[in-house]
Write a protein that binds this DNA or RNA. Structure first.
Lengths: 112, 112
DNA sequence: TTTAATGGTTTAAAATAATAAACCAAGAAA
DNA sequence: TTTCTTGGTTTATTATTTTAAACCATTAAA
């Protein structure tokens, strides 16, 4: 399998992650989760509703997408769920590696 | 302006770029443009129609989006337009810097 | 000066995604 | 047990994207 074919696969796999973090509504959720002044133990859905101005079903929907790409994680305490940014940056690192590969290909092409 | 506020702005600005490269149809265009065995002098719209299996208006539409985020550039020769990946990686580098910042914030939060 | 080739644009239709309302389930508190 | 809180899910609607058809403009070739 050629390097370009591998890159193509990596690119396709990154698609879901890129779309997930590209949406501005989801970005506002990510930003809220980054703000430790509020978080500390994680944010509840209702907190995110307040901060983002989105409805509860919308927050729930977007959180599901962010959970699916392993960017967000949560911990349950009774009926309460506390959401936080996943400590593992696997997807972020994969994307960084992909961007490096693309830059490399462009650089090589330029030298031809 | 706090670091987080700056990050928020950077994030929002990256949104268009993330959505642009997140789409699988556009990724297939990017991949085709990366393949120097075909390119050399750049690819024409009709070449991209063949490679991607998309219609001409669709290719034209997606190329416009990729041009708008400065990922794709082109050169005209008569009626022919030759498309290629922009040699400047400004947007890619901006995104890499953003991802680094996000990773940094997550790391800091973890240590609290 | 016709005619053919290339490709961008506009518009209407189709596909997809996002949203809110209504509902359901589980745990905590009364 | 009953009631309240928290929050996930399903469905129908709305909004957004994507697409193709039809059209127009430009340049090259005949």
């Amino acid at each position: 399998m050629s390097d370009l074919t591998k890159l193509k696969h990596e690119f396709a796999k990154s698609s879901i992650f890129l779309v997930a973090i590209g949406d501005e509504k989801r970005q506002s959720i990510i930003i809220a989760l980054m703000d430790q002044k509020i978080i500390r133990r994680g944010l509840q859905v209702t907190d995110l509703v307040d901060v983002t101005g989105l409805s509860r079903p919308a927050v729930s929907h977007h959180l599901k997408i962010l959970k699916d790409v392993s960017l967000v994680d949560y911990r349950s305490e009774g009926t309460k769920n506390f959401y936080y940014l996943s400590h593992e940056n696997k997807e972020i690192n994969k994307l960084k590696a992909l961007l490096d590969d693309v830059t490399e290909v462009i650089k090589c092409n330029r030298q031809l």
